[in-house]
Write a protein that binds this DNA or RNA. Structure first.
Length: 718
DNA sequence: AGGTCGGATCTTTTT
DNA sequence: GATCCGACCT
């Protein structure tokens, strides 16, 4: 049995999880303990042992990437393709269910998925429709409210307003928004989950069908599930299914989005026949890094409890650098990356992690200056770009005239003389008659209730869409997109935009055609028309920001997007009070613990080298701040940390922390006051080079800014 | 109907 | 300081 490739590479705990006979299993998987591996091997094990057929397996993740990786690794392990399994994201699987059972779910067959951008616009329209002041009732806040409620599984009718006027109004907005979505066949992300839940809850026959099919339900990142996802899982699990949930309460960093760590505790209550397996052996990081991470997270209360260990080496000390300012901090990190590269390391293996995306700027500047290639993760996704969404809106409307979000988006883009007055008439008619914007437009024109100019322009738009719909019939997907781009007039419109921007956009439209050409129908979604499948794909899988450049480059990302990844050489920058932990989280103990978990996630990304840094002054929002070093730094055992200083003595955080001179052996510290025989008093601005070649830039009170070779300058510290 | 200006805002963002 | 949004102007 141990010769099986499925079990052979596993340690005892992993093997116990993979081969468990318990009907319900909760795997507490520490960072780097082989979480994905256990999921993959568990599925392979069930298949190989004949405990399950592929079609009996439902495996749920949070990201498309994780789902794709899981499927690929299962097939690799079994050395054959495995059809019939449902492996996907919560949203992807919910979507699939709703497509298959749109009637029971009370959706139009052509329903479309909205991203949060679209959603905000529909919310805004709902607010205006209720004649509310949108400065007081901010669309963003209402959107937040609606999503939070949906994440909790609450419809407007479920919310007890208890006479609270504000709450009452929010619920009214929620209701109006819901009606608008229903009319237009629009489904937001939270709605996908809620609908899928209600579909099963309210259609017992259907639920039974799926319960009988999915005998094995597996969940990744269980600590990130929200209330509705948990309820959905309980439904499908029923009394019979084997449930296999993998998660780490210490890596729960999405509570602000409705994720509920308590679901791990609830699992133990709701699935009484469960078994718990702890994966604590870490295969990623050095002993020092793990000890630091363990010590940090021990400051949190309410943990399920876990202690990571490794039988690998202690590794190097964790480095802590106190920058003179944010620019110096970035400069230091980039220099360490260059050292790494000079010693034969790859840029790819280096990651700069930060709390807020705004921090990437300074790092990027420093990298560019040093000519080090880099890549920023997160940010704008391909399918979220305005021009891409514009083009897709044409396709959406041609596909389904009732799509109000698409209608609003392009009715006057490019400008075709349909002004706000006209549109308000259309909107009002739609609202009063409870019909779609499209139908309202048709009606207004037919009843001659518009000025002749407006009516003409509007009719032209309607005809354009109708013609487009006709012309794309029978075309391939890429020809369809090509035609849409061409007929929409978007290219001409963007050509008029000045500067690079317009060109960029036209390029992206071309890229969209390429994306359509490369698009393949998901194997099991054969029933869905190609165009619908592509539109859903665009909404559910927004794609990476930049087209993948394959150059060896330093990776930049927020701590949130670093979860699940690992790098040999990690830089955790901006370790400052106010920034990390963030001010907005400092007052609430729960949020503070989440910040600490975020820090834990950051530390545990590192395999070999870990550098922490902070700046003594930082430019933020146009003003200078002088932050204190992060409290998290004080929570790290001082014997694991080595503070790096550019010459000169400066108080370490903890008197026991070792202080070492920078390896460059700089004799001065940035910001240090110095004295020169001829130039007089000055302040050190920059240091570069090493050893005998060290050069120092000094701003002299009398002589201005000068570069000097340290060895000959004869500078004296003041 | 589009451009410009002033003001508010400034955490994280799997889908 | 940068950006995003809406009001206002042309």
């Amino acid at each position: 049995m141990s010769t099986s490739p499925i079990l052979a590479p596993l340690n005892a705990a992993q093997r116990a999880a993979v081969t468990t006979g318990a009907p319900q299993t909760l795997v507490l998987a520490g960072a780097g303990s082989g979480k994905t591996r256990v999921l993959v091997h568990r599925i392979a094990w069930c298949l190989e042992q004949g405990l399950a057929s592929p079609s009996g397996i439902l495996a749920v993740t949070f990201t498309n990437k994780a789902a794709a990786e899981m499927r690929a690794r299962i097939e690799q392990l079994l050395a054959r393709p495995v059809g019939g399994m449902w492996v996907g994201t919560f949203h992807g699987i919910a979507h699939r269910l709703l497509r298959a059972h749109w009637r029971e779910a009370k959706l139009p067959e052509q329903f479309q998925i909205m991203d949060s951008d679209d959603q905000q616009k529909v919310v805004r329209r709902a607010i205006r429709g209720l004649n509310l002041d949108e400065h007081h009732w901010l669309p963003k806040e209402a959107q937040w409210f609606i999503n939070a409620r949906k994440d909790e599984g609450q419809r407007p009718a479920h919310i007890d307003t208890a006479g609270d006027h504000v709450l009452q109004t929010m619920v009214e907005i929620y209701k109006a928004y819901e009606e608008a979505c229903q009319r237009a066949g629009l489904v937001d992300f939270a709605e996908l989950l809620l609908r899928a839940y209600e579909l099963w809850r309210d259609t017992p026959g259907l639920l039974r069908h799926y319960q009988e099919r999915f005998f094995h339900v597996l969940v990744d990142e269980f600590q990130d599930t929200n209330a509705i996802q948990y309820a959905w899982l309980r439904l499908i699990a029923g009394e019979r299914a084997h449930v296999f949930a993998v998660g780490d309460d210490d890596q729960s960093i999405y509570s602000w989005r409705g994720a509920r760590v308590e679901n791990m505790q609830r699992f133990r209550r709701d699935f009484p026949r469960h078994e718990i397996v702890r994966l604590e052996q870490n295969y990623r990081s050095t002993g020092n890094i793990l000890d630091a991470a363990n010590a940090l997270i021990a400051n949190n209360t309410a943990r399920l409890g876990k202690n990571l260990w490794t039988d690998g080496s202690r590794g190097e000390a964790i480095k802590l650098y106190a920058g003179y300012n944010d620019i110096d901090e970035a400069r230091y990190c980039v220099e360490r990356v260059r050292d790494w590269h000079r010693d034969g390391g790859r840029f790819d293996d280096c990651a700069f992690l930060y709390r807020t995306s705004a921090q990437s700027r300074v790092l990027e500047d420093a990298l560019r200056q040093a000519d080090v290639p880099y890549r920023v993760h997160g940010g704008f996704k391909f399918y979220e770009r305005a021009e891409v969404k514009d083009a897709l809106a044409y396709l959406r409307l041609a596909n389904f005239r009732g799509d109000d979000a698409a209608f609003e988006r392009i009715v006057n883009l490019p400008a075709r003389g349909i002004g706000n007055r006209t549109l308000d008439d259309v909107r009002q008619t739609a609202r009063l008659e409870r019909i779609t914007l499209w139908d309202a437009a048709v009606r207004l024109i037919a009843h001659r209730e518009l000025g002749s100019r407006a009516a003409g322009a509007l009719q032209q738009f309607l005809s354009l869409i109708d013609e487009l719909a006709h012309e794309i019939e029978g075309l391939g997907l890429d020809s369809t997109i090509e035609l849409v781009v061409e007929r929409s007039g978007l290219v001409d419109h963007y050509r008029k935009e000045k500067g690079e921007r317009g060109l960029d956009r036209i390029e992206n439209l071309a890229e969209l055609v390429t994306a359509a050409r490369d698009f393949e129908l998901p194997e099991d979604d054969g029933e869905l028309p190609l165009v619908s499948a592509f539109l859903s794909h665009a909404a559910l899988e927004a794609g990476e920001g930049q087209a993948g450049s394959f150059e060896d480059s330093v990776q930049l990302m927020t701590l949130h997007s670093a979860k699940g990844l690992e790098f040999a050489n990690v830089f955790l920058v901006g370790m400052e009070e106010g920034l990390f932990p963030h001010t907005r989280s400092a007052s609430d103990p729960n949020q503070l613990e989440e910040e600490r978990r975020l820090c834990y996630v950051g530390l545990t990304r590192a395999m070999k080298q870990l550098t922490l840094s902070y700046a003594e002054s930082r430019r933020l929002h146009g003003t200078d701040y002088y932050p204190q070093p992060s409290r998290f730094l004080r929570e790290l055992p001082s014997n694991l940390v080595e503070q790096v200083r550019l010459g000169g003595a400066s108080p370490a955080l903890d008197p026991r922390t070792r202080v070492v001179e920078d390896t460059n052996g700089y004799p001065y510290r940035l910001g240090q006051r110095v004295h020169h025989r001829t130039f007089g008093e000055g302040v050190v601005l920059h240091l570069e080079g090493r050893g005998a070649h060290t050069r120092v830039q000094v701003n002299f009170a009398a002589g201005g800014v000068k570069w000097l070779v340290a060895a000959y300058a004869g500078l004296e510290a003041d």
